[in-house]
Design a binder for these strands. Structure first.
Lengths: 185, 185
DNA sequence: ACCTGAACACCGTTCAAGT
DNA sequence: ACCTGAACACCGTTCAAGT
């Protein structure tokens, strides 16, 4: 099986999913692919570029957000769907945050959030600010929960995850944002 | 001059401030202190523990937030002050986010934000959610701006920073949150 | 008590040389 | 065109041995 950019990215997603970001090194990836480390650089410019590609995959793999007539409900549904998709892959929020830092426009669901907010009647500088606020809330929430998980994984504490409480807190935060957006003063 | 935990942390803050997180390695720190890398581990358990200490320093060094009677104005002022303090040190938001991930209670200004929100009449699960939302907004905003800066630093683009626009967006986001918190339904 | 010396098991990236 | 071999300049952490 020949090497290809696709196979490199696929394997990167697989390693991330199974072992986390700490184990996602170029050398580890090469080993997994049965190839010398230098070979990867024929298909990918750098580790950073690879991670941007990985982030893209993670966000596209998400469950289709249920369509809704009410734009506020649509924003809620999309935000919750993105959060749920990222929670499945360890350290995914870090990877997406890096991609968003390198190139904010490359993250498609961000632009989708922006479109939905415009339908809510938000516009101009307020639209940009609200989009950023939502993205920070999503990524922050996922990062916090994933860190909690791997903290309790090495801990002898209770096995029950803080999942439901974290989702409730996330949704309360969403409501605060959506309420704050309602009357454009 | 003998080595001490304090001197290690001080030097870590200095290296971070001048060269950024990528250059803040235990080995670099040891070189800067004129000592062997292993010596650091007598004063500090690990790099992670050191970074938590560094984050604490960064947040304590902030300008005292102007006191205000109006609790909403106080939240605004504190959030803006924390943001300004972090913007001065490269990659500071990443370091604080890590500390917040390892031990959320260790970050003092977080608890201060929580206290101010309670004075605003926010309570219960809503208080936790609002605090987290604010923290995510602050750290997300600083991360985004610091990444923009180091992107434009290697770029031949315009020298003018996106500072004023970013501050305005940050404050608009704050307003959305504070408006959303006003009527506890 | 505190530090050195030296090792262990790793990194990302480059690049001549091979096929 | 695509990959190997080998190197360059690094990492965090541990630990016997010295003082």
């Amino acid at each position: 099986m020949t090497l290809s950019r696709e196979r490199v990215v696929d394997t990167a997603v697989a390693v991330l999913s199974r072992y986390g970001l700490a184990d996602l090194s170029m050398r580890r990836l090469a080993r997994e692919l049965g190839v010398q480390p230098g070979a990867l650089y024929w298909h990918v410019a750098s580790k950073q570029e690879l991670l941007v590609e990985v982030a893209d995959r993670l966000l596209r793999q998400r469950v289709a957000a249920p369509q809704s007539q009410d734009p506020a409900a649509a924003v809620r549904a999309l935000a919750v769907a993105i959060r749920a998709a990222l929670l499945r892959v360890p350290d995914s929020a870090d990877v997406v945050a890096l991609a968003y830092a390198v190139d904010p426009g490359s993250v498609e669901p961000l632009r989708e959030l922006s479109r939905l907010l415009r339908r809510l009647g938000v516009a101009g500088a307020r639209l940009d600010a609200a989009t950023q606020l939502l993205v920070h809330h999503i990524l922050g929430s996922v990062t916090a929960e994933q860190n909690r998980r791997q903290a309790s994984a090495s801990d002898p504490g209770p096995v029950a995850d803080a999942g439901p409480g974290a989702l409730a807190a996330f949704e309360l935060g969403l409501d605060v944002i959506l309420d704050g957006l309602r009357p454009p003063p």
